[in-house]
């Protein structure tokens, strides 16, 4: 015996609303074809634009509303987001400390190691092995491995960020030092310029002039690491387990 609901549905008449532009698939109406030949925009462009920007003032009443917001609404949302971040000050401070300390540690170590590899033959002999192995790997791909090694807790988070920043910084600094023309070193040596002055003049100034993208590289790495860690206070391992469905 059919239920009351199904019987009501069965009894309901199948009503269709006749649409003036409705055409079988693959056919163009005579009116649209004429408009197209005259060079006028095809019929319906207003409705398409109004459906994209449905809630803007120019949209006709009753049209479909979509998710595209007014710029003023976006600005209000950003303001509310900033206010909510400011209200949760302790969280913000914790995240800033975590990201900042990890970034500083990784950058300092990366700059020192990068300069050492770039300037010293001995350090290059040892360091170039690691550089060659790590250079083809996207730096962000190392982070899951580091998470596996370091586990949960606040310090491992900082260390993860620091290591994420370290490799890209070291490679970037080494590449920058290595990219400076050798003839400038020979020139400075021929004038008996002291080693520290060569490093200061040639590498710092030369690097800034020749390879300005290098220092921003590790900034991106740091931002990526910070973004990965900063969006959740819970340990990373917890999130991995949750993502795995356990």
């Amino acid at each position: 015996m059919p239920s009351a609901r199904s019987s009501m549905l069965d009894r309901a008449p199948h009503r269709t609303i006749a649409q003036p532009d409705e055409q079988p698939a693959g056919r163009i109406s005579r009116r649209r074809l004429c408009a197209k030949r005259r060079g006028a925009p095809p019929a319906g462009w207003r409705s398409r634009w109004s459906s994209r920007f449905g809630n803007w003032p120019a949209a006709p009443a009753g049209s479909i509303r979509c998710s595209c917001r007014r710029p003023s609404a976006i600005a209000v949302a950003i303001y509310k987001l900033a206010m909510s971040v400011a209200r949760s000050g302790s969280t913000f401070r914790l995240r800033s400390f975590r990201i900042g300390s990890g970034w500083v540690l990784g950058t300092v170590a990366g700059v020192i190691i990068g300069f050492a590899i770039g300037l010293s033959t001995l350090a290059r002999g040892v360091g170039i092995t690691f550089i060659s192995a790590l250079f083809p790997i996207p730096k962000i791909a190392l982070l899951p491995l580091l998470i596996l090694w370091l586990g949960i807790g606040e310090e491992p988070k900082i260390a993860t960020i620091a290591l994420g920043v370290f490799f890209s910084t070291a490679i970037s600094v080494y590449s920058g030092v290595d990219a400076v023309p050798r003839n400038l070193i020979r020139m400075a040596q021929s004038f008996n310029v002291p080693f520290h002055a060569i490093v200061r003049q040639r590498d710092l100034a030369g690097r800034a002039a020749i390879d300005p993208g290098g220092l921003s590289h590790h900034g991106v790495g740091g931002a990526a690491a910070g973004g990965e860690r900063g969006n959740d206070r819970r340990p990373v391992r917890h999130r991995r387990v949750r993502a795995a469905g356990r």
Partner: peptide
């Protein structure tokens, strides 16, 4: 030494390049 490619510091002016060996 006067180098074939002149080995000038490209981020410095002419005067700074001439002064470079004297700074130290």
């Amino acid at each position: 030494f006067v180098f074939q490619d002149f080995a000038l510091l490209p981020w410095c002016t002419v005067e700074a390049n001439v002064e470079f060996p004297l700074v130290h």
